[in-house]
């Protein structure tokens, strides 16, 4: 069996690597969009505007209440009705809409977790509501958001495999094609799994580095 893993690796190493590039592009684009969407909806949910609240709750509720694959297909075909998009962009958009809901909840949670005294201290110094948000609350909320965001990003990386069903030739799609052709599905998916695993490990390390870099106070105290 180990020999056949080598055979599969030998056959597909470069092909999988190329497909990994596509997986990374999908992940990067969808998560960058998800952060923007997440921020907007976090603010809507925190705002005192009832229509904003309703909108945010509806969006988050729908996304949380439906399986990703259903949402993906629905959005893919829905989006294709309105505009002509490549499967890459349709897939990225759908993944972003999905992850955005979770990112919104992460930001809402961390913004709310900042002690109200921080805001009051900022206001007492003459800062406007907006300035206090920008200089005092958000920087602290972002730092607190890094661990759960990192977690969500790992989920997003793995979720990107579902876009294979839209015909994007990323890692999982490549593995499916390869397995069908080489009649060694077990080894092929094992190798694909290893690729994902290595990506996740690298990513976890990066998130930890980022967290350290962004918390100089904790570094100094340690």
């Amino acid at each position: 069996m180990f020999e056949s893993i080598w055979v599969v690796l030998d056959m597909h190493f470069l092909g999988f690597l190329k497909a990994t590039g596509m997986t990374l592009r999908l992940t990067a684009v969808s998560l960058a969009l998800a952060v923007v969407i997440g921020l907007v909806f976090a603010f809507l949910k925190l705002s005192r505007n009832p229509i904003g609240n309703l909108l945010a709750n509806a969006y988050i509720g729908v996304v949380r209440g439906t399986p990703l694959i259903v949402l993906l297909m629905f959005l893919y075909f829905g989006i294709s009705e309105i505009v002509v998009l490549s499967s890459f962009w349709a897939g990225s958009l759908a993944l972003a809409i999905h992850a955005g809901a979770y990112v919104a909840e992460i930001f809402r949670g961390t913004i709310q977790s900042i002690d109200h005294g921080q805001h009051e201290a900022a206001r007492s110094l003459g800062m406007s509501r907006r300035l206090s948000m920008r200089l005092i609350i958000l920087p602290q909320a972002f730092r607190r958001a890094i661990p759960p965001l990192g977690n969500q990003f790992i989920i997003g990386l793995k979720d990107s495999s579902l876009v294979a069903f839209l015909g994007v030739s990323e890692l999982y799609s490549r593995a499916m094609t390869a397995a069908a052709a080489n009649f060694r599905p077990f080894e092929t998916y094992l190798v694909a799994g290893l690729y994902y695993l290595v990506l996740v490990l690298i990513f976890t390390w990066l998130v930890n580095q980022l967290e350290l870099r962004l918390t100089p106070d904790r570094r100094a105290a340690a």
């Binding site: 005294g117 201290a121 005092i136 920087p139």
Partner: peptide
């Protein structure tokens, strides 16, 4: 000035 300081930790 507040009882609990409220310095900006970041």
């Amino acid at each position: 000035v507040f009882q609990h300081f409220h310095l900006f930790p970041h």
